[in-house]
């Protein structure tokens, strides 16, 4: 079971049109995510819009401060952040510095029907 991480990728086809601005991009999930209500799977691709304007219920990506690493978190009702899929939650030592908001999630499947 490999550690979960996010990697910036370029998309092809119609989806690439989302990332035609400097402030929109895609992140792919690498490694095995912990099970939770978000049900993240390896290979899931997140469409992100840069910005710090967040609301309760949003999923965000934030800088962990360690070697330009990004993590996913969900914004709670009290606007605190909760880690999802095995990503650590922000802490006093590692406060959340939001990079962007998750707009959507793409999951593609191989011809055998499995997630690819």
């Amino acid at each position: 079971m490999s550690a979960v991480m996010l990697e910036e990728i370029e998309m092809e086809g119609q989806a690439s049109q989302f990332a035609n601005r400097k402030n929109t991009f895609f992140l792919a999930l690498r490694g095995t995510a912990a099970e939770d209500s978000e049900n993240l799977q390896e290979g899931d691709v997140f469409a992100i819009t840069e910005g710090v304007d967040v609301e309760a219920g949003d999923m965000v990506v934030w800088w962990t401060g360690v070697a330009r690493t990004l993590a996913l978190a969900r914004v709670q009702e009290d606007l605190s952040f909760k880690g999802v899929g095995g990503f650590p939650p922000p802490s006093d030592e590692q406060p959340a510095k939001v990079r962007g908001v998750v707009v959507g999630r793409l999951r593609q499947f191989g011809s055998n029907g499995d997630s690819s």
Partner: peptide, 22 residues
């Protein structure tokens, strides 16, 4: 966006952000 053979889920409340750069 999800073609072929995929699934694209736009998170609730993110519709304007999803559409904005298109």
């Amino acid at each position: 966006f999800a073609k072929p053979c995929g699934l694209f889920d736009v998170r609730p409340g993110q519709e304007p952000r999803f559409f904005s750069p298109l």
